[in-house]
């Protein structure tokens, strides 16, 4: 009887999974998070063994390739980060210094957080960098989720392996585990609160934990967001960066 029940559940599960592929789930999740342009005011709360540090920022973005972040907190006031394609420009107002980074420097933790410049300034679709290696369903707290395992297509990708948990009903990403090449869990990302505006869904409170450091996490809060913000490509320039 027990075997029959398990078999039935497995069959139902397989039938449900057959309706949609893992790639389609990822595409739909990304579509809900995509917008042409946006303006965001937010906070980054870094917790480490010494305590809590808060950085506030304004952020403008256009598509997935262009973003500008201006830090507004006292310590970093006026520091800006411009991402254009695969280049990152960092502006330090005190020294009037402009530094351009490329390659592996994009993976450096920004302001001592668990979030890299690459994480913070957006990236292209996951399917450009990863292939699906496993697809199943799994309950996660109160959510029924698709669990998708991804393997990096090339070594230049920041995390060689990722596991995603995506809500079946809303197709919102709920949790992600990111692994090193050796298979060690490096980061756990959790979405703690979401809002929906029109066809778009955003995480307004999320948490990134560095599993290699004890008591280390970075929380993101979005305090204000404007979708389809009127901004053109010309805005993402050295002129705006050094202003």
């Amino acid at each position: 009887m027990k075997i029959a029940l398990v078999t039935s559940l497995l069959l139902i599960s397989v039938t449900l999974l057959a309706d949609i592929t893992a790639e389609e789930v990822i595409e739909k999740m990304e579509q809900r998070q995509e917008f042409k342009s946006a303006f965001i005011q937010g906070r980054m709360v870094i917790n480490d063994r010494f305590g809590e540090k808060i950085s506030t920022f304004d952020s403008w973005s256009l598509g997935t390739d262009n973003s500008l972040i201006a830090f507004t907190s006292l310590e970093e006031q006026g520091q800006k980060v411009l991402r254009s394609d695969n280049d990152i420009y960092i502006y330090y107002p005190d020294a009037e210094e402009l530094i351009r980074l490329s390659g592996s420097a994009l993976r450096d933790g920004m302001l001592g957080s668990d979030v890299s410049y690459e994480d913070m300034t957006g990236e292209k679709s996951l399917l450009n960098d990863y292939r699906v290696t496993a697809f199943s369903q799994e309950p996660l707290g109160k959510h029924s989720t698709y669990k998708i395992e991804l393997q990096a297509l090339r070594s230049s990708v920041a995390y060689p392996k990722q596991i995603l948990w995506i809500d079946i009903d809303t197709l919102n990403g709920i949790q992600a585990h990111k692994f090193s090449l050796s298979g060690k869990l490096i980061k756990v990302e959790r979405v703690l609160e979401m809002i929906t505006q029109g066809d778009h869904t955003f995480a307004i409170h999320s948490k990134v934990e560095d599993k290699l450091k004890s008591n280390s996490s970075t929380e993101f809060f979005i305090d204000h967001i404007e979708i389809d913000y009127p901004v053109t490509l010309d805005f993402f320039s050295l002129d705006e960066l050094t202003w």
Partner: peptide, 11 residues
């Protein structure tokens, strides 16, 4: 100038 990860915790 170059930047690289040294192990999992250090840059």
């Amino acid at each position: 100038y170059t930047l690289s990860n040294l192990g999992e915790q250090y840059t």
